[in-house]
Amino acid sequence: MRRTLLAILFFVALVAIWSALVRANIWSPILLPAPGQVAQYLAHAFQDGTLLTAAGVTLRRLLMGYAIGLTIGLPLGLLTASSKFVEDTIGVMALGLQTLPSVCWVPLALLWFGQTEGAMLFVVIMGTVWSVVIATDTGVRTIPPIYARAARTMGSKPLHKWIYVILPASLPFLVSGMKQGWAFAWRSLMAAEIYVTILTGFGLGHLLHYGRELNAMDQVIGIMLVIIFIGLLADKTLFSPWERFLHRRWGTGRT
């Protein structure tokens, strides 16, 4: 209760400082709109449906790309951790590609797929897969070898060992890998939406882009807030419960 109150107080204070800065009239109101103006824009965009439609379009792309990225990334990470050959080939490639900022995939995606949904999806997947591979690989490698030894003495065969020992043992790392993948997917998609205009759907990134084109600072800041809010929400609802469960079981971190 006390913690919630303090958090609310903190954000109220932030808005108050913002509003004070606007009143001080240091910058042009075109560059720094008042909080009320931004709220007004958001309310308006919410009412006429643009905001919800755009968020829907963006989330659909994000979830699809993320799901595909995970489906490819998790097994690949397990493979690179267990086979020297895959480690030396795909593992090195993943490490290299992971260092490539996901915006760098945009020109290639545009040339290959044109201004289509496919281009969006491709950028998101490329942004997700490699970081998931690396996180999963690291996770499996940090499992104490004694777990596998103990399982083997109890008669665990390779397949059984993978399903009942290696996978659950690497769960904390898989979850942090998934979380990282989510962050990368989110970033890639925003980059793609800001750079690529396509007719099949206007996402949040497009709204942000047009906010800049129209010099509508209230829209730019409003959409940025929405993007931050969605990121926070995903973290709190998708990942935090998992992490709490793992911390309780493993006895790591704060409980």
């Binding site: 104490p144 103990a150 003495t153 008669g155 659950p168 043992a169 006895g251």
Partner: peptide, 19 residues
Amino acid sequence: HPGRHRLVMFQESALFPWL
């Protein structure tokens, strides 16, 4: 091979933390 007729108890307990 290792087998369940000869079970090992290790210095660290080697218990599985997910169970």
